[in-house]
């Protein structure tokens, strides 16, 4: 299988609409015939990342690469950045406001979930410039 690259813009603002990019990615991964387990892990990571970009960074872009060995999801935004990554990774830590909470998010589980379901998670962030969260999900051969 040659490397497939997918790009999904993520609109900022309304959290009600968030999740479209993740839905589309999931459909594409299904069409590629990847194992259901792998699709589920990738979808959860992408969805948490998408929600984060909407809640914390007013949108951004998701870039997904699929090859024989792994799925790489890169969530890129030009938001406020994360001042303390170690703190942000802790379960329960959240700076989300009441709107996110009303919709069932803001429990401080997003980044920990992305770690739980991926084989590798990297956060590249600069305060005032933006954040890129990259997750890798390995495809068992």
């Amino acid at each position: 299988m040659e490397t497939i690259k997918l790009i999904y813009p993520v609109e900022g603002g309304d959290l009600i609409e968030a999740g479209e990019a993740s839905s589309k990615m999931k459909l594409t991964l299904k069409k590629l015939g990847l194992p259901q387990d792998i699709i589920r892990k990738a979808s959860i990571c992408m969805y948490e990342g998408e929600i984060n970009m909407v809640i914390h960074a007013d949108g951004g872009q998701a870039e997904v690469e699929v090859d024989m060995n792994q799925i790489t999801i890169r969530m890129i935004d030009s938001g406020p950045g994360i001042p303390d990554v170690e703190k942000a990774m802790q379960e329960g830590f959240s700076t989300a406001g009441p709107t996110a909470r009303e919709l069932g998010f803001g429990a401080g589980m997003g980044l920990p979930n992305m770690k739980r379901y991926s084989d590798d998670l990297t956060i590249d962030t600069t305060v005032g410039k933006g954040t890129t969260v990259t997750v890798i999900i390995k495809i068992p051969q």
Partner: peptide, 25 residues
């Protein structure tokens, strides 16, 4: 998203589109 197992039923008191998207993922 953290704990649900495969082929599950979700019970919730929350009503918004993100519930369905979470179920889908």
């Amino acid at each position: 998203l953290a704990y649900v197992k495969k082929q599950a039923v979700l019970l919730t008191g929350l009503v918004n589109p993100q519930v369905i998207r979470t179920a889908d993922m």
